[in-house]
Amino acid sequence: MSDSRVPFSDIYLATEPYVKSVGQVRIGASGIGWKAAEGEAEALQGVNIPGLSMPAGMLALQREDLRRLQWQRVARGYGLRIYTKSGTLHKLDGFTADDYEQLRDAVKRFFSGLTLEVRDISFKGWNWGKTDFEGSDMSFRVENRPMFDLPMAYVSNTNLANKNEVSIEFQPPRTTGKGTKRKGAPDELVEVRFYVPGTIATGAAIPAVRDDDENMSA
């Protein structure tokens, strides 16, 4: 019954980064759907997202394929992360904070066995933490909370610059869609470098540890 579906408007299909296309999300017993708004499907031309049918610009995720659902703060408001059993992480961004309860209730009502998990993001502004893999995303965590994720699918090159430094280069996907406006284009991340502590070098590289040792032995 279409009446029993819960709709959310002005939602971005963010599965593929740098593609700007808004539409409506509907959640019902059959699964989660997203449909591009009038004129918004153009930007998805040539974009490869599993489950997306063109030219209508419709994403259909079947109930049986849903594995895990997460809610988190994103740049464009709040986002729904949908892990499918077929291995894709879909992202729908642009929800408001107020949508949370409605979304959580819809998940509970329609998808028994699944819950809307809250993914708590770190906004401390620190640049030290731990890296961890979640599917094909490398996630940087501060005090065990994710701070940002790097999808390995867009990595063009990695390099061990020296024994403690790893660089990861990204090839931002070519945004050739007609809907791509250069002026409003997002800033693109092209490289991240990490200092990675070595098992041998750690003590020597970080004076705090050495100081403590000296104090302890004194």
Binding site: K130, D187, E188, R193, V196
Partner: peptide, 13 residues
């Protein structure tokens, strides 16, 4: 001492 640090980030526009 086991912390990883973000050492640099490069953006383009």
């Amino acid at each position: 001492p086991g912390n990883t640090f973000v050492r640099s980030l490069t953006f383009r526009s």
